[in-house]
Design a protein around this nucleic acid. Sequence first.
DNA 1: CGGAATCCTCTTCGATACTG
DNA 2: CAGTATCGAAGAGGATTCCG
Lengths: 232, 232
Amino acid sequence: MTRRQYGQFCGLAMGLDVVGERWTLLIVRELMAGPKRYSDLLEALDGIGTSLLASRLRQLEDAEVVLKRRLPKPSASLVYQLTESGRELSRALLPLALWGVRHQTHAPKQPDDMFRAEWPLVFIAQLIDGDVTRDARYTYRFHIDGSSATIRLRDGEVSVTESDADDPDGDVDVDITMDAATIVDVSAGRLSLTEAVTDGRIVFDGNASAAALLVEALPERITIDSGLIDQT
Amino acid sequence: MTRRQYGQFCGLAMGLDVVGERWTLLIVRELMAGPKRYSDLLEALDGIGTSLLASRLRQLEDAEVVLKRRLPKPSASLVYQLTESGRELSRALLPLALWGVRHQTHAPKQPDDMFRAEWPLVFIAQLIDGDVTRDARYTYRFHIDGSSATIRLRDGEVSVTESDADDPDGDVDVDITMDAATIVDVSAGRLSLTEAVTDGRIVFDGNASAAALLVEALPERITIDSGLIDQT
DNA sequence: CGGAATCCTCTTCGATACTG
DNA sequence: CAGTATCGAAGAGGATTCCG
């Protein structure tokens, strides 16, 4: 069984041969918030159908975008995670995600739309200026429309993970609360970060200097070019 | 008939709801080389099938990524072209295309792979540094594996168009010849521009200072981050 | 002739059921 | 928990036909 390919000698077409099918890039997005198990993916990607997920994961493994790994001792569960190539792909998705949120926000939020706090955060995390956060070791827990996710700054690295809202996890420095419409307005550049804060649409609670550092490390206003600015 | 949507309140998912279906992004890539007629698109996108092309164009019009326009007087033919939103999308595709060419070049080139000189050039043109070319008015004709395309620098703007190799078009300043493997190696960063020139894999013929300007305006070596560097 | 709509076949997707 | 098997529905590919 040979998958449908475009048969074009072109970077975009070759990329789409690998990650252009339905659901594939959303699986990659899920794994941008750390390694996940098969059933985590199945739960996050409502509607995917179990055999299609299995098939997509196999394709991504074959393309060396994703690898399957058995977690050490206590858990011993199988997880899927991004390879180096997968992480490079995830950086290439930021401009596309910013374009999508900027041009394609139909209604503010359909009542039956799915939403997870990690979805915007894996992209916004890419906008954090590493020079500003180089020596910081802070943990931010976001609460957005009933969903929670955590951004950690460690040794100049930024990581995003999902989190249960009532997970004790005592190392949280700042709790940040907003609704889904707000983070989309900010992501689309319709609302600047300070506007959102002064309007009370984003509420910080906890270590004030940690909160200030995060605001300083993010662009004041996200533009379509934010994803194009070199972050080295 | 309601199109298949992901139903997720996420920028990437919303973007893919519009441009994530088969062929859609390749239609956008075609229009990055200027307005084209229906039958031009049908010819360039081998295998698409006429009714699918019509349907995709209608979706892109509805999403205001593409618009249909009647050309003035003499030709009076219908052309499709990118809107401002479509041009922003095309900028967001550069990192994805660079990822694709870097990680997914299977064999050097399958003998039955389609190829057009404009395909790599619409992306490479985005890497041209506008500060360097601000006052230049040069025309470069590329000849790659039997296919030709033209890059024009005008008033700080860069445009790419397809061109018939034997089109007289007397305003060409430099002819640039290479094979498809070379431009892919350069795009993937496996070969630097000066290496390619000194190895004779890229041959310039014409106005030497125009040629030197183009080389100066391009990155010496294309990296996965080249698409992420702000070009303002 | 350019720009499609129709029809038919084949493939892919989505959902449910089932298995190691 | 991590998938495979199955099957009806939707989408894609190719040829032909239609319209202005």
